[in-house]
Design a protein around this nucleic acid. Structure first.
Length: 474
RNA sequence: GGGCCCUUCGUCUAUCGGUUAGGACAUCAGAUUUUCAAUCUGGGAAGAGGGGUUCGACUCCCCUAGGGCCUGCCA
């Protein structure tokens, strides 16, 4: 058992406790981030506990999804994960102690009894109570039973929440919750309390869907004489229409955000800014977030996921990201789309990415912006491209080829200057041959400005593509 | 039904009794222009409603409305 020092005197220990029943929700990611920020702010410890007490729904695959999600987000726990189900004996041990203290009782109600009681309780506007609170277990005829917490009929339980403030519950509103199921397995409300206590958690930062549970859990802490941690309940994330985030709103799993080409540092920045702020600061580093963060400053109202703002922040981090990393991400992404890639893809992308990344909101978009450089010669021109190659433009492009072949500095600025000079020498505007040149260079794919496109392609490839096109349309 | 939480521009937020209610994203207009984007300049845009308290309320209190959560042998 850990030292009994009150949480306020120990160094900060936070945790996230997801249940492994599917994908990792973006809301879980934000809760993880806030716990991580809070722990790091105080030089404390951030832990992970897998809440797998629901044996029906928990899967090993979902556990892996959580590990992967946290790793991708860069929110590594400071210790190996604790698996809740593995601690079932300890949970039962605590319940035995509660039984001895008279803080819990065996309840032999049948499913039918329970349903009837639930109905009565509802009609009376009170919480569920079992007649077995006061009955002698000997009358049970050895029927199966659950262990229930023996709630208080009077008084109130106060939760001092770091974000919601003081919240009071009348004890009569708090039901006699099940601690141990009839199959002997511990339930969530019991397990969280025991595990948070045993793991030395000082700050329980979680979604505000647990605010009501906190009162019930507080009763268990008190019954066991466990020191109460601090609580901080974060509002949930909603979709753009203000309703609870669901499939209808698009992505909700962390993995989907990664697939769509969002950068983890962008996610951290965006998620931190969602429901928390530090003055007018919008774009900040992890170090700044850690320095500034405090759960007490978390906004009390639910926040909506704003894709446009996420995209804007992601663009900011794509600009900041170094090219080789972006290159690897783009290649991964294109492979996932089953795109056929030339052998020298990496070289081509390395040349193109610096010239186009400022305009990319996601890695997927960045991949699209690089399409022109990935085309392999000879590029077949579609109808639209061909129609741009009138006799006049073909003549212009032929002379431009000659002009460019004498160009020795292949930088966007030098090339832009050169194109302008060429146009001037020809006595035409850039518009006269710009569209045609673009078509020839890109083969119809999206491409950056002409100078950048030429630069990304390099002189050999650029001239060859011109040559191909001119001979093709002769 | 009962309990609890929440409510500032379209969205995320600042404000912690005295501000022309600020910023960001989005949007609109203009500039730039070889496509798209980016970039630059400028504009519009908010305290849910009603009562109090106070010299003074977005800020404190109450009511109403709307949204959310819990009310499981799910977590």
């Amino acid at each position: 058992m850990p030292a009994a020092a009150p949480p306020s005197e120990r160094s900060v220990v936070t945790r996230i406790a997801p249940s492994p029943t599917g994908s990792m929700h973006i809301g879980t990611a934000r809760v993880a981030l806030f716990n991580w920020l809070y722990a790091k702010h105080f030089g404390g410890t951030f832990l992970l506990r897998i809440e797998d007490t629901d044996r029906e729904r928990s899967t090993a695959g979902a556990v892996q999804v959580i590990f992967d999600g946290l790793q991708w987000l860069g929110l590594q726990p400071d210790a190996p994960a604790v698996f809740q189900y593995a601690r079932a004996d300890r949970h039962r041990e605590v319940v035995e102690a509660m039984l001895r203290r008279g803080a819990a009782y065996r309840c032999y109600m049948t499913v039918e009894d329970l349903a009837a009681e639930r109905e009565r309780a509802r009609a009376d506007g009170r919480a569920i109570r079992s007649p077995w609170r006061d009955r002698d277990p000997a009358e049970s005829e050895n029927r199966p039973f659950v262990v229930r917490f023996k709630g208080h009929l009077e008084g109130e339980t106060v939760v001092n929440d770091l974000v919601k403030g003081t919240v009071a519950f009348r004890n009569k509103e708090l039901d006699d919750l099940v601690l141990i199921r009839s199959d002997g397995s511990p339930t969530y409300n019991l397990a969280v309390v025991v595990d948070d206590h045993d793991m030395g958690i000082t700050h329980v930062i979680r979604g505000d869907d647990h605010l009501n549970n906190t009162a019930r859990q507080t009763l268990i802490y008190q019954a066991m004489g466990f020191a109460l941690p601090e609580f901080g309940h974060l509002p949930m994330i909603h979709g753009e229409d203000g309703a609870k985030l669901s499939k209808r709103h698009g992505a909700q799993a962390v993995s989907e955000f990664s697939d769509m080409g969002y950068l983890p540092e962008a996610m951290r920045n965006y998620l931190a800014r969602l429901g928390w702020g530090h003055g007018d600061d919008e774009l900040f580093t992890d170090a700044q977030a850690i320095e500034w963060f405090d759960v007490r400053d978390v906004v009390r109202a639910p926040a909506r996921l704003d894709w446009a703002k996420l995209a804007h922040i992601n663009n900011h981090y794509i600009r900041l990201a170094d090219v080789p990393r972006l290159c690897d991400l783009v290649i991964d992404n294109l492979r996932r789309q089953d795109m056929e890639l030339p052998a020298d893809t990496k070289t081509r992308l390395l040349a193109a990415i610096p010239l186009v990344k400022d305009g990319a909101k996601t890695i997927v978009e960045l991949g699209e912006l690089c399409q022109f450089v990935l085309k392999q010669r000879p590029i077949t021109l579609d109808e639209k491209c061909r129609s741009l190659l009138t006799e006049e433009t073909r003549n212009l492009l032929t002379r431009l080829m000659d002009w460019l072949s004498k160009q020795d500095v292949w930088t966007p600025t030098a090339l832009l200057e050169s194109l302008r000079e060429f146009a001037k020498a020809e006595g035409v505007g850039l518009g006269k041959f710009g569209a045609a040149l673009r078509a020839v260079l890109s083969g119809g794919a999206s491409a950056p400005d002409l100078a950048s496109a030429l630069c990304a392609l390099g002189s050999d490839e650029s001239l060859a593509r011109l040559e191909d096109a001119l001979s093709q349309v002769r």
